[in-house]
Design a protein around this nucleic acid. Structure first.
Length: 455
RNA sequence: GUGGUCGUAGCUCAGUUGGUUAGAGCGCCAGAUUGUGGCUCUGGAGGUCGCCGGUUCGAACCCGGUCUUCCACCCCA
């Protein structure tokens, strides 16, 4: 067999020990905050039935689904002629019944409906798992990446939104990333679409104005025209996008403009109420009400949340929102949910860029016993359990290699203490401890080692 | 899905109009130092120039295809 060059699929990555330490630092931080706020963990399978996934993310989303070819003879019972004529998209549905999950929210909705009788509502769950998108990779954009989701279903109280936003605030506080939390409300966007007389164009309008700060007002108007929004509509839209003042000012102005639109007013009420709650929470992060925030996912119906890193140029690192009827499609009506999703991989990129991983994020042993030979090694092996019992990560170098090599190994792995027990130490009944950071070296007892390495 | 871009040592990258034996820094290994890492010095190993094909007396260099990387759209964490 010809030697084959090993490789992994486009848009996927391997993670080495150093990267995993750093990733675990992110996951652990997020996980801990989720748990403190009373969320319980669940997991769902990597693959879902395709009909669970299809139609939940819009046409674009459907295209980005990875589909899994049926096992066995997938052509069995399929008319080849019909297959050929139906086009590759439709054809794929005839030979694939499963797909890789695209996010964690839809599988969660499925989970809630399927297990509704075992669940205590309101149900607060968190989930940290990879998702897959058949997108074209770019920086900060992968085909396999992790999402860290927290959702509350079965309660439409805005306290849930506030709780999730304070989670966001806490997580980024702990990770030492300065962020801006942007808020909007889908009902306001619907109200705007109604106000300018084109409620049917809500998607086109939201997608277009979402690009406002990126491409500017002119380009947004051009795109709107292209999408069939009338000139009068755009004329009415203009002052809305130009609103100024603080969050409250802008909401108040909006309230006057959208006065006759009940949906719009409801959205404004929600946003105002939420901002009021957040005010009393005294968050560390800046919270901004932003009318141009749209977010693509079709299922959002109320609050929309997006988080941007202040110090790094990267897409959003966390997003979320309220969806009133996600479970409805699976047969469970009147269950409202709200959730957020941290993009762990982008957060990784931000921390890497800002060099903000703490030194302690490097997981490694704290103590390395040098190996001077069989007899000495056995002696060290009897000491190791003492360290383990004290919760200290420790190991012995497996080979009686040159000390130089063993020390270089400790150095490379950032091991803090090297313990030397050779013939002399064994006879004297003590240890030589070398601090690999300061370089100082001294004799001590095992108890002193534990005391030293333990803190 | 559309348009572009990149690929040379483990890593970051040089490599002249196509011309003999493809280089550097870092890293790695060994020695200077038989129980002492980092710093220094000396030496060494390491290459299908992404892959396949074409043009040519001759290709890392030119052409086509393909895979990968990154970028702009689209969309998104």
């Amino acid at each position: 067999m010809a030697l084959q060059k090993p490789s992994i699929p486009k848009g996927t990555r391997d993670f080495g020990p150093v990267e995993m330490s750093k990733r675990n630092y992110i996951f652990n931080t997020i996980k801990k905050v989720f748990q403190h706020h009373g969320y319980s963990q669940i997991e769902t399978p990597a693959m879902e039935n395709l009909d669970t996934l299809l139609g939940k993310y819009g046409d674009e989303g459907d295209k980005l689904l990875f589909k899994i070819l049926n096992s066995g003879d997938f052509f069995d019972g399929v008319d080849p002629l019909e297959l050929r004529q139906s086009g590759s998209n439709t054809a794929s549905l005839k030979i694939c019944e499963k797909g890789l999950r695209y996010d964690l929210t839809v599988p969660f909705a499925r989970f809630v409906v399927q297990h509704q009788h075992e669940i205590e509502f309101p149900f607060k769950r968190y989930q940290i798992q990879p998702v897959w998108r058949a997108d074209r990779p770019q920086k900060g954009r992968y085909r396999e990446f992790y999402q860290c989701d927290a959702d509350v279903v079965g309660s439409d109280s805005l306290l849930n939104e506030a709780d999730l936003i304070s989670i966001i605030d806490e997580v980024f506080q702990q990770l030492d990333i300065r962020v801006k939390i942007k808020l909007n409300n889908r009902k306001i966007l619907a109200g705007i679409a109604g106000y300018i007389g084109q409620p049917d164009k809500i998607t086109a309008i939201t997608v277009a104005i979402d690009k406002l700060d990126k491409i500017g007002t002119e380009a947004v108007f051009q795109e709107l025209q292209l999408k069939g929004v009338s000139v009068q509509g755009i004329y009415k839209l203009e002052p809305l996008l130009a609103l100024s003042g603080n969050n409250t000012d802008r909401l108040d102005s909006l309230r006057k403009i959208l006065a006759t639109d009940t949906t719009g007013i409801k959205g404004i009420d929600e946003a105002t109420h939420l901002l009021g709650i957040l005010d009393t929470l005294k968050l560390k992060s800046e919270v901004e009400f932003d009318i141009s925030l749209a977010r693509g996912l079709n299922y959002y119906t109320g609050t929309i949340i997006e988080v941007k890193a202040q110090e790094a140029e990267i897409g959003s690192i966390c997003g979320g929102g309220r969806y009133d009827d996600l479970t409805g499609i699976f047969g469970l009506k009147n269950i409202s949910g709200v959730g957020i999703s941290f993009g762990a991989d982008r957060i990784f990129d931000v921390l890497e860029q800002l060099n903000r991983f703490p030194a302690g994020a490097m997981e490694s042993s704290r103590v390395l016993f040098a190996n001077f030979g069989e007899k000495e090694a056995l002696h060290c092996l009897t000491l190791l359990p003492l360290l383990y019992k004290a919760g200290i990560a420790a190991e012995i170098y497996p080979d009686a290699a040159k000390l130089k090599k063993q020390m270089a190994y400790a150095d490379a792995r950032h091991i803090h203490y090297m313990v030397l027990v050779g013939e002399n130490e064994m006879n004297e009944g003590n240890l030589t401890i070398k601090n690999m950071v300061t370089g100082e070296q001294f004799k001590a007892s095992p108890e002193e080692l534990i005391k030293l390495a333990g803190c």
